[in-house]
Amino acid sequence: MVARLLVGMLFLVGLWGVVAKRNLVKKVFGLSILNSAVVLLFVMEGSRSGTAAPIMDAGVADIVDPVPQALMLTAIVIGVCVTALALGMAFRLHRATGSFDIDTIKERLRHGPF
């Protein structure tokens, strides 16, 4: 229960970063934290289903469910893809306007020669 609440708070921290921060790179950090919170939730819940790692050496018994771990492998890779694309967009906007601040970017895009 406490662990779930902590993961939920981590999720909210990420959401706060995405919504409230003005710096584009910090927004990407927030997105990454959101993703990590979901990954942590899955791995934590899966870890309750057994005691040993799901690697079938001789004598290993009572392994944890490997399905959420395999699922989170996919989620991590997709998270990297999302982060990379978001950073690419931030890079492009910085090239065009010289700033990472969303208000400055908006201002310069409105008044600049673009």
């Binding site: 799901p54 690697i55 079938m56 050496d57 392994i63 490997p66 399905v67 395999a70 492998l73 996919t74």
Partner: peptide, 9 residues
């Protein structure tokens, strides 16, 4: 595969 995560994905 001994590693069941690899076996899945």
């Amino acid at each position: 595969a001994q590693n069941l995560v690899s076996a899945i994905y």
